[in-house]
Design a protein around this nucleic acid. Structure first.
Lengths: 172, 172
DNA sequence: TTATTACATGTAAAATCTTGCATGTCAAAT
DNA sequence: ATTTGACATGCAAGATTTTACATGTAATAA
């Protein structure tokens, strides 16, 4: 149940509305977890029922800002420290990148890999913008390490894709 | 529906039983997708119903080896070339690594990060063994690129975790 | 010969996630 | 004034995934 703990983690960093959480998943945590608002709102309700989060403010447009309770903090710590991590991953792009060069004719493989390369570069730009925004903000964002890891992995991906493209060239 | 296409991809590389597929997901494709046998067998059945795969051999212990039909090959190509990729990812470990240094007391964070580091190194060893097995086998495995990407990303992860640990040290 | 391990397949219930529908508020620009 | 876009929340149906249960075969080691 990582959604729940990712949400607790985001709320521990800073109280937020369901809408805020949805954007944080897309922005700061996009390379780690995805969740849409239609998952987030019901889960917020359950967490509230279980006493892990509470409404700490109500604002315009019926917005409710949630923060962690003591029980929520305890559950988050328990998960991070005591629960054995699951190493499972799911990445459709990775599946594609592995399959394309092996299974497609060189021309098709080139199309697929070049699209992957564009996506990697586009994602890197997005990360760089986030990093710049954080820097402009004083550098204090708790999400900087996540962005940093993304920026470190990105050139490795790029290099790998370019090598796959080069290997294609050798064959054709 | 990536499960289906990952399965088609694995079968395109080489015909396999459901049991084989289960192991390949764990071994070669572990950094890209996870699937358990209880998903794989029903999906094999559906793929057979739809004419994407067919039984190409039956062996001991009621085993059935499946291979792609022409329709299966066509569907796989269609997915790889024509379908717009989804960039969504899910990695529980990544969520943990991002949250631990921010939300735990330095002592707890150190415990969590050191466990992450051990896991990264353990996974790298596993990848190195697979790479060695492939090399011993003549280097012809279609999974070598996947293993290679894992081996390239691994030191980046290690470096990031070590930097997080060092940053902890500064604070404590 | 018997125990263990790896091979091999399956089903069902429960949990989780996606997709599509639905509603409404507030601020800013036209 | 009104339109657009960002903010904000929610439900329901359907698809996917996990977890637990269930069964049986073949090879190998003790």
């Amino acid at each position: 149940m990582s959604l729940r703990h990712a949400m607790l983690g985001l709320l521990a960093v800073d109280p937020a509305t369901g809408y805020d959480l949805t954007r944080r998943f897309d922005k700061s945590l996009s390379s780690a977890w995805h969740a849409s608002h239609s998952q987030i709102y019901p889960e917020l309700g359950r967490l509230e029922d279980e006493g892990m989060v509470e409404v700490v403010a109500e604002g315009a447009r019926n917005s409710k800002t949630y923060g962690l309770t003591d029980a929520g903090h305890a559950e988050l710590r328990r998960w991070l420290v005591d629960v054995e991590p699951s190493r499972q991953q799911r990445s459709e792009s990775a599946v594609r990148m592995f399959l394309a060069p092996k299974l497609l004719a060189p021309g098709d493989a080139r199309i697929a890999l070049e699209r992957d390369l564009r996506d990697v570069l586009k994602q890197r730009e997005a990360l760089e913008q986030i990093a710049a925004a954080i820097a402009a903000d004083g550098g204090g964002s708790p999400f900087l390490p996540a962005v940093d890891l993304g920026l470190r992995v990105s050139p490795v991906m790029e290099g790998w894709i370019r090598d796959q493209l080069a290997a294609l060239g050798d064959e054709s």
